[in-house]
């Protein structure tokens, strides 16, 4: 995938699509380190509610963030969650979501600004919206998502 990416023109980027409460999000593939099935995490008492805990990923400690709690959506306990691991400021975070979809190549010109009516919780982590054939894809701004949680924690 990486080799392929090198040949892309600067205008298209590849996004991994993920599903949260039936809404499609896209995260730039280059930010993603790993995709995991549901993992057992160690709870961290007193942390913010969206911090699900921490886990061991090949000897590194990863902080798990439940993005669904951050966005205030329903969590279906009967379904298994998945997570994508991203690195930010030299730390690993595992973002818990409902499901991982496929990889899309998107022309940057197709990404439009957030609609003004978007819920502020969502607007905080959204880097724009892209019109797909049958649905809309929200580009997730991972650094901002993590910063916003840290800002509230401290």
């Amino acid at each position: 995938m990486k080799a392929e990416n090198a040949h892309q023109t600067s205008k298209t980027l590849e996004y991994l699509t993920i599903l949260i409460d039936d809404q499609k999000f896209g995260i730039p593939v280059l930010q993603i380190q790993d995709v995991l099935r549901e993992q057992k995490v160690t709870r961290i008492p007193l942390a913010s509610p969206e911090v699900a805990g921490s886990l061991n990923l090949r000897g590194r400690i990863v902080t798990a963030i439940d993005v669904r709690k951050r966005l205030n959506v329903k969590i279906d306990p009967s379904k298994r969650s998945m997570s994508v691991v991203v690195e930010y400021n030299q730390e690993l975070y595992s973002l818990i979501i409902d499901k991982v979809g496929d990889v899309l190549s998107l022309d940057q010109n197709r990404i439009e600004k957030n609609p003004g009516t978007l819920d502020s919780k969502w607007r905080d982590i959204s880097d724009g919206v892209c019109q797909l054939d049958s649905e809309l894809l929200i580009i997730m701004d991972v650094p901002r998502l993590l910063d916003s949680i840290q800002a509230r924690a401290s």
């Binding site: 961290i44 942390a47 913010s48 921490s54 963030i65 840290q150």
Partner: peptide, 9 residues
């Protein structure tokens, strides 16, 4: 993690 640095315990 930086996300947890506010926790003094």
């Amino acid at each position: 993690s930086k996300l947890l640095q506010g926790l003094s315990l």
